[in-house]
Amino acid sequence: MKLFDKLAGTTACAALMFSALPSFAEGELNILTWEGYADPSFIEPFEAATGCSVSATYVGSNDDFAPKLAAGGGVFDLVSPSIDSTAPLIAAGFVQPIDTARIDEWNSIYEKFRTSDGINQDGEVYGVPYAWGAIAFMYRADKFDTPPTTLDALWDPALEGRISLWDDKSALYVAARANGDMDIYNLTDEQIASAQEKLIAQRPLVRKYWSSAGELVDLYKSGEVWISNTWAGYQSALLAEEGIEVVEFIPEENAEGWMDSFMIVSGTPNEECAYQFLNMAVSEVGQCGVANVNGYSVANPEAARRCMSEEQFAALHQDDPEYLDSLLLWENLGDRLGDYTNAWNAVKAQ
C-alpha cells in the first residue's frame, strides 16, 4: 500500500463542510495523539473556520496515554488511544462520555467500531472511531533473495542486528503467535511468560525497538534495519519517497488490526471546540486527511466515498469488510492489561 497524493480539493471540501458549523467557537485544543493526526493540511482549515486553535503532543505507544493524563493536570482536551488501551482511561475517569447526538455522521461509522467494547461501557459511549489498519510486517526488498512469509524471520540468527520491533506491548502479540498461541488477547499466565521468554531470546538479534514512524524510517534508510513490523501504509510510503523499496506483508501467522478513537478528556474547558474537532475528524476533511497523510483506512466509509477516488477507496479496503474481519483486531485487555505491559517492560529491562 502507498500513500496517495494530497487530496486536491481538501481546502474546498473544508470550506464546504465548515460552512455548516453552528458557530465560531474559539478556544484552544491540546491533543495527545499519533503522528499525522493533527496534520496542517486539515488542521489549518479547521482553525481558520472555527477559531479553535490546535496544539498536538505526539505519542509513540499506547502505553503513553494513561501516564501522561495522570500527570497532565488538565493539560489535554482530546486523546486518541487504540482500542485495546481505552479501558484504563475510562476506569480512571480520565475521559468523559460522548454525546453521539452531537456527532453529525455518527451513524455512518462502521457499526463494528461504534459498538466496540473498547468505547462502550455501562450504556455510555466514550470514543469517536477515527482510523484503522494493520500492524503488518515490512522488509527491504534489496536484502532478501527469498521473501519472508512467516514470523520466524524475526528470530533468524542470520539477521542479527537487522531486526526491529515496535516498542509497545503488542510485541507480546507477535511472540505469542510465533509460539503458536493465537488467542493473543486472552493469553494465560504461562503463555504470556512463554512470549516474554521468546522476546528475551530475540533481544540479541534486535538492532533497536522503534518508537515512532520517523525513527523506523531512519533505521531503514541507514541500512541498520532490514525487517520489522510497521504501521501499514505509513512508513513504507515515507521510505518510497526516499527511494528505498520495502515490501509489506501479512505473515502466515496473521497480523493484528488496530482502531483509534478520539476521546474527550474529562472536565475540558474547551468542549465546544472538542465537538467541532470530532465532527471534522469523521467528515470527509478529517477522513481523507488522515488517509492522505498516513495511508490509513478510515472509520467512516460514507465520508471516504465522497472524497476518495475509486482506486484509493479499494486500496484502503473501505469496501472490503472481510479484510477487516481477517485481522486480529485489537481487543480491550481489561484487567489483564497490566500483565501484558509488565511482561513487555521486563523484556526491555534485560
Rank of each mutant, 00 (worst) to 15 (best):
I43D: 00
D189C: 07
W330D: 12
M17W: 11
G60T: 08
P301R: 14
V217N: 04
S53G: 07
W155Y: 13
P148C: 04
F262E: 05
Y234A: 08
T188L: 06
L239I: 08
M263T: 03
F76A: 10
E28H: 10
W106H: 04
T149Q: 12
P22Y: 10
D104S: 15
D104I: 14
S53C: 03
A91H: 08
P321C: 03
D117S: 07
A281N: 11
C288Y: 06
Y340E: 03
W226K: 00
V347F: 00
L165W: 04
S116K: 13
L7S: 08
G60I: 05
T149S: 13
W226C: 00
P22D: 14
I98C: 07
D63F: 06
E253Q: 14
V54T: 02
K143G: 00
L238Q: 12
C307P: 10
A237W: 07
T50E: 01
N294W: 00
Y234G: 01
R114M: 08
V298T: 15
A314Q: 11
A299M: 13
I250V: 09
K143L: 11
D5Q: 12
M280E: 08
S211H: 15
A92T: 05
V265Q: 06
E271D: 12
Y37L: 08
E271F: 08
T86H: 03
K2G: 03
D39K: 02
D335C: 00
S211A: 13
F18E: 05
V298P: 10
W155E: 06
M138T: 07
Y37P: 11
F277P: 13
Q202S: 06
A158L: 04
A153I: 13
W166T: 11
E310Y: 12
V125R: 15
V282S: 14
A20E: 14
G334P: 01
F65Y: 15
M1C: 04
M1N: 05
I135T: 14
P321Y: 03
G223F: 02
G72F: 01
Y340S: 06
A237S: 15
S19V: 13
G27V: 11
Y110L: 15
V75Q: 15
G286A: 07
S326L: 01
Q96T: 15
A232P: 00
N107Y: 11
A12K: 13
D335L: 07
E124L: 15
V246F: 00
R162A: 10
I90L: 00
V125A: 13
P321I: 11
Y340K: 05
P97G: 10
M138E: 09
